[in-house]
């Protein structure tokens, strides 16, 4: 399964990813960094393309057993 991953130490918490996410899978943790709810993320790459800081990558993740 493909999932979005945020580099949280470099994230600026601008909220662009949250806005473009069609699944409402992203929240901004107390204005510090973006967090992805992997259960909701479908790996569509919208956030990855929109992130102005380029700190989101969609990566292959192992499916939970």
């Amino acid at each position: 399964m493909k999932k979005a991953m945020v580099n949280q130490t470099e994230c600026v918490a601008c909220g662009v990813c949250k806005k473009v996410c069609p699944r409402q899978a992203i929240t901004i943790f107390h204005g510090i960094y973006a967090e992805v709810n992997e259960d909701l993320c479908v790996g569509c790459r919208k956030c990855e393309k929109a992130c102005p800081a380029s700190v989101i990558q969609v990566v292959q993740k192992e499916v939970k057993a």
Partner: peptide
């Protein structure tokens, strides 16, 4: 670059993120 690239180095954004980090240090 990307449309909202200003947000990356916006001084207000850096300040509010810094304030949030100080405020929620324990949670992080």
């Amino acid at each position: 670059f990307k449309p909202r690239s200003w947000c990356v180095y916006c001084p207000m954004g850096t300040m509010t993120q810094g304030i949030s980090m100080l405020k929620y240090k324990k949670e992080i």
